[in-house]
Design a protein around this nucleic acid. Structure first.
Lengths: 145, 145
DNA sequence: CACGATCAGTAGCATTTTGCAACTGATTCG
DNA sequence: CGAATCAGTTGCAAAATGCTACTGATCGTG
């Protein structure tokens, strides 16, 4: 995960360099769902503790999590920084794709609810005119072209 | 990557089970940007060939890529299935997050352009009323509650 | 204060996954 | 035919991961 990617000008590669390993996004998912302490994360993800230690430190180094000691003295509290909170869109996109393609219709799964009690509507890229955008209507413009 | 996750009812975990490793999303990114053959992927990502073989097969097994032999006989062509194409939103979300948080202002990076030649507007989750949604205005509703 | 329980890690070692380089076998081009 | 290209495969070394057990600090209770 310390590798420099083939194309350093691709933001997808850069993003994956920061959060693209097996556990990191699950940790962020749980942080968004009120996990705060070491054991919160350990129990929810089932990750090995030495790996969790490593991932939490990396996320702190990368500015995605922030650690502070709880006022009571004991617990270490991990919270998302604004950069980390901004991953909300990524998590929502993954969640919605998972709902559509990784479940059979009868399998239950958790849902993301807005504060009207409704499931969050489907996220959709649009172009500057508000028209839905997809692979066919967009192109990657390499920097310096 | 063959593990069953702690919480099988979480679509984020399921999605990551399918595409959440170091190389898979880069392969999908390149597939969206017209990479079609084994060597296309190998050259763009720089991935080792045995790993590429493995990842392509997994993506085919999981219904994200489809392989067929080119009419000329020789080349194997890998194309995204509808399920794979539907990852567009995920890639866009990752790309935009990377652009915002993984570059200094003076560093160049590639951009996603719509067919008016404009950069794609920022993707934003909204609730059922069209109001922007974020961590604080949403909750995860576990299945069966 | 002593006792056990809890929290946040570390350390050691076995297993698994990756990465690298060389090799195969089919096809195609000159 | 001979060389090059494509799509892999194989073997081995290096790195990441998982498991289990251990440490040290703190906390609540009698």
């Amino acid at each position: 995960m310390t590798t420099t990617w083939t194309d350093p000008t691709c933001p997808v590669a850069r993003a994956l360099d920061l959060i693209g390993d097996r556990w990191t996004l699950l940790i962020i998912r749980d942080a968004m769902d009120n996990a705060r302490t070491f054991t919160d994360f350990q129990q929810r993800t089932g990750i090995a503790r030495n790996i969790l230690t490593d991932r939490l430190h990396r996320l702190i180094d990368r500015g995605i999590l922030h650690r502070h000691t709880a006022p009571t003295g004991k617990r270490q509290i991990y919270t998302l920084t604004p950069t980390g909170r901004d991953l909300f869109t990524v998590i929502v996109a993954l969640r919605q794709w998972g709902e559509r393609h990784a479940y059979t219709p009868d399998e239950p799964h958790s849902t993301l609810i807005d504060h009207h009690g409704q499931p969050l509507p489907r996220l959709h890229p649009t172009d500057t005119h508000g028209t839905p955008a997809d692979i066919d209507t967009t192109t990657v413009h390499k920097s310096g072209e």
